[in-house]
Design a protein around this nucleic acid. Structure first.
Lengths: 341, 341
DNA sequence: CGTTTTTCCGTAAACGTTTACGACAACACA
DNA sequence: TGTGTTGTCGTAAACGTTTACGGAAAAACG
């Protein structure tokens, strides 16, 4: 059915070795021969069998992005996703690598899927997202010596891997600054209950800024819940006591913000009127919500592209002449002022 | 580094053939031996090298989903995506198949990427989305004899492949019925300008329903544009003439609807008050938009799961004892009444 | 006990590549 | 002419599996 390198060689009356060398651009092949091989390859539309190549070279020429829908994403759709992936794939494609996104079932935290990818050598490296403070995936990969990069930092695995993260601490801090400048003193914070690292960073920034402004941190104004709309809906009322209510809320996640706003509305509290709302990571939903939510926006597509570069720079096979190096970056979030604060 | 079947065999003092047979559950291996092999495999955490397996078996054990972001998706995020993929991956995982999402750059219509996947035999079959009326990808795959299934129908490639589609014709028709029942007579329709098949189906349903109600189809009330927010924004004014304006609009796409509503708002026409709006494919954005948009909702996760089943049923290697069969289904869309109509 | 069947396992080929190695011819140089 | 160099190509091994085949031992059977 599909043509192999043997067909090509037979068709040209030369050996498969020469065909392979011609195709791979090696120097020791006559210019004429190379030309003939390339033409014949196009004509028979031959492309080397990936399994054969991988087996021989010990490299799959593909990078796996471990993607794990959270429970609730089925209704939500995770709009964060496509722009980042588009950049990531572009960054790898430039170096001839395929991006494969490896999915698991929602909620099972990838460990099993990750092991499969690594142990069956389906990819040459992996990209992790949703990093946790203590992340067993990172521990596993470092222990196994398998190359990877992360979107987000972690305390696991020291700092011996490339990582690209957003400055959630600064964003949390800036959100407080902005609210305080507008006269707010009682500011609530809502974040995911998982060990997700950005939740910790955000809260650190929030706390620091409050102290800087001489405002005492009130534990009653901090809550966490499931990282989805239902989580926000469920947990928001907890930071809205009957008396001495907060006048502002910062949500660490867009889905939680939407659920939270629903809860507020049901309590008769109008976001943007009776209470100020700021969201840390902007998505299209923040823009279309009513009132449009003030939010901090990441530049996802460039981030994807950059993380691909960073991972490749750490791999001996792809690093430049100066050798592999570990790059770690923290990117800013840009405040998009809208109507909700 | 990574352990091979040879290591395992040496460790157990048996031949690699026996190891392989034990691992693959063949009958001709002693129960004791099998037990020992399985334990040793777990202990050395051995998993068969995929490249080796694929090469020998001529099968990659993976299915490629061709995903192609449209221009504009970088801001939009395509929320359709994750729920469908989650179901798709679940359906394949049950049969031991990996789903790999093969991405290309935005806008270049996959043909190149598809060829690469097929010719380098990176997957055993592919799943196509965004089918067009005349779809060169389908032509290519049928001509090449490469197995595939589609989300959406097409006129290409006869009907010799499994396909799962939504009943856009019925939805278009029901949308008109609903609007007419509420007293509307001048109803505009906006759809994507690409040859996307669902755009044709929608319009057919729209036309049929109008005629059924004795309403003449006015070409001035039908327009098409880019399938994104900018497209909707740009094209909606064209169906809003100064006199004899439509009192309702049906959008064939959520992103276009959001852009269209923005254009309407700028013209001083309030969706849900001054004009009725219905969207054919619901996404979370329709729910959160203000006014919340009445829309037709697909059940994406079950669709993904079902399409996986259907593709597998068409493959000799996975079909049941009754042999492979081509299943084609059309699923209904459920009307979610909200505030905009 | 002899013969047949069954159970279990080892051997070796094959999948499609890439690449180290060596061979051969042509050429340059002294 | 002899020696070394360069350019080009063929040969064959190797990557890690799976599997057809055959054989030896054990079991079943008469």
């Amino acid at each position: 059915m599909a043509s192999s390198i043997h067909d090509l060689a037979r068709h040209l009356n030369i050996s498969i070795g020469t065909v392979s060398r011609a195709l791979n651009g090696r120097a020791d092949v006559n210019a004429d021969t190379r030309q003939r091989v390339l033409e014949a390859a196009k004509q028979l539309n031959y492309a080397p069998n990936q399994s054969g190549r991988s087996l021989r070279q010990g490299a799959t020429h593909s990078i796996a992005f471990m993607m794990q829908p959270h429970p609730g994403d089925l209704e939500y759709g995770e709009p964060f996703f496509i722009p980042f992936l588009t950049g990531l794939q572009a960054g790898f494609a430039e170096r001839g690598l395929d991006l494969i996104v490896a999915m698991g079932a929602p909620g099972d935290y990838q460990q099993e899927r990750l092991r499969r990818v690594v142990e069956t050598r389906r990819a040459d490296a992996v990209v992790l997202a949703w990093t946790r403070r203590e992340d067993e995936r990172i521990d596993y990969l470092t222990e196994r010596g398998f190359p990877f990069a992360t979107l987000g930092r972690s305390r696991s695995g020291s700092t011996s891997y490339p990582s690209l993260d957003l400055d959630f601490e600064k964003a949390g801090s800036e959100a407080v600054d902005r609210l305080v400048a507008r006269g707010h003193r009682r500011i609530a914070a809502i974040r995911p209950s998982l060990d997700l690292n950005f939740g910790h960073l955000f809260l650190a920034g929030y706390r620091k800024a409050l102290r800087r402004h001489g405002i005492e941190v009130d534990p009653a104004l901090i809550a966490d819940g499931f990282i989805n709309e239902a989580g926000g809906y469920q947990v928001t009322p907890r930071v809205m006591p009957a008396e001495d209510r907060p006048t502002a809320i910062i949500f660490n996640n867009d889905a939680m913000a939407l659920g939270g706003c629903k809860a507020l509305a049901e309590m008769g509290i109008r976001p943007g009127h009776d209470i100020a709302v700021i969201v840390i990571v902007d998505t299209p939903l923040c823009r279309y919500f009513s009132p449009a939510l003030t939010a901090f926006r990441p530049s996802l597509e460039p981030m994807g592209r950059r993380l691909a570069e960073m991972l490749l720079a750490s791999l001996p096979a792809f690093a430049g002449p100066e050798g592999p190096r570990i790059i770690r970056e923290v990117w800013p979030l840009e405040l998009i002022a809208r109507e909700s604060d």
